[in-house]
Design a protein around this nucleic acid. Sequence first.
DNA 1: AATGCAATCACCCCAAGGTGCATATCTGAA
DNA 2: TTCAGATATGCACCTTGGGGTGATTGCATT
Lengths: 229, 229
Amino acid sequence: MSKAKPNPNLTPTPAQADLPADLPAHKGLVVVIEDHQEYLSALKRLLELEGYACEAHLSAESFLQLHPPEELAPLGPCCLLCDVKLPAMSGLQLQERFADLKEMPLILMSGNSGVHEVAEGFRAGALDFLLKPIDAEVLLQRVSQALELSAQRQQERQFREGLRERIEGMSARERQIARRVAEGMLNREIAAEMHIALRTVKLHRHRALLKLGAKNVPELVRLIQIEAL
Amino acid sequence: MSKAKPNPNLTPTPAQADLPADLPAHKGLVVVIEDHQEYLSALKRLLELEGYACEAHLSAESFLQLHPPEELAPLGPCCLLCDVKLPAMSGLQLQERFADLKEMPLILMSGNSGVHEVAEGFRAGALDFLLKPIDAEVLLQRVSQALELSAQRQQERQFREGLRERIEGMSARERQIARRVAEGMLNREIAAEMHIALRTVKLHRHRALLKLGAKNVPELVRLIQIEAL
DNA sequence: AATGCAATCACCCCAAGGTGCATATCTGAA
DNA sequence: TTCAGATATGCACCTTGGGGTGATTGCATT
């Protein structure tokens, strides 16, 4: 499913010697959407000079086409750098599409936005709203920050996904008992509440620990805690 | 230290019959800072009509004078509603003073701000930036949201303070052993690592549970977890 | 029908946790 | 000095957790 070559024509990828060449990006991927061809190119050059992978688009549609629904393979930290004023679909609209996709922070740009647009951008959850002319230092600082956020959220999600998998690998009984154990109930109490023999509780408890990969009860407590959000 | 009458002259307080009159505010306190007397009064009326307590100031200095350093007694949810353009000290500068005071969210207002100011306001951590003319519905919605945030953060902090107190009420040994227990170590292992008899570990462990108010190990794990941020 | 898995339970054993009782040292506060 | 609290330890007893062996039942897939 996932592309072996993530950026076939847009990103030459510096191809540093000490890292495998097919890694998506060394310092992260920046998706830039900007309808001015020249400015777009300039941004791309700047970002690539800094060691970022950069995917350039002239429109939001072009971007959505490459990353269709929300099946963005989480291949390393990435962020959106996007002009607010775009043909057909604005940056704000784009943000709505990815509202749930917190792993791809949005940085908005604009040269002639009104105060309302700026406020709207922030309310919509943009990490920042850069006003043209944009200072290169500031831009890079924000991008770096956005990628850091992205990496952090991806890591978080991946952990949760792994945890979720482990939990779904448990049987219903095991889940019930694991929850009660994490709540501090004694085996005896659990057995009474569930009308089950003590030995059975112990068995499920044991398997729950195994399947969750928890070496002891405190670890199980932490996992269940995290799972419960 | 804390004032028995929180709003002596500024807030008449609706004095509803079903609640003690000396409560700070039923729905929360909104501190408004606005240099236009008329607008300030209008805001105050609006907010009080909605059941909020309202403290009105014509300048940031006036506000800081009433709430000197950061000794804001956390008497219920409160937020700042503040014009960006103020004599002497702007809303943004004010925000810097209270950057650590997350329990008092800031809503900025302005009628003639530029895009840069709006962006700066958001970057500074303002919850929102309302542009005049301000719609009453929108304002009340934001205030409600801000107070909810404030209440949540205060509750969180109070819990942490209580927890901190309990932890500081423990002896050094008790803390060390509680931490190790929460990490999943066995009494025997703890005893070995600390060059202590097993019996001693059990004692400290017991007292730790007592002083933390934890009924069982999972509860202790959660408390230690929270304490560790 | 056969196989596999989840769930259930009994009996037994050992390890670990929880407590009461008794004792002892050390340090800082009254 | 005396007293309180922290720290430390030993002994004994009971509870609880962990795990092995073996067996049964029900459901679903093969």
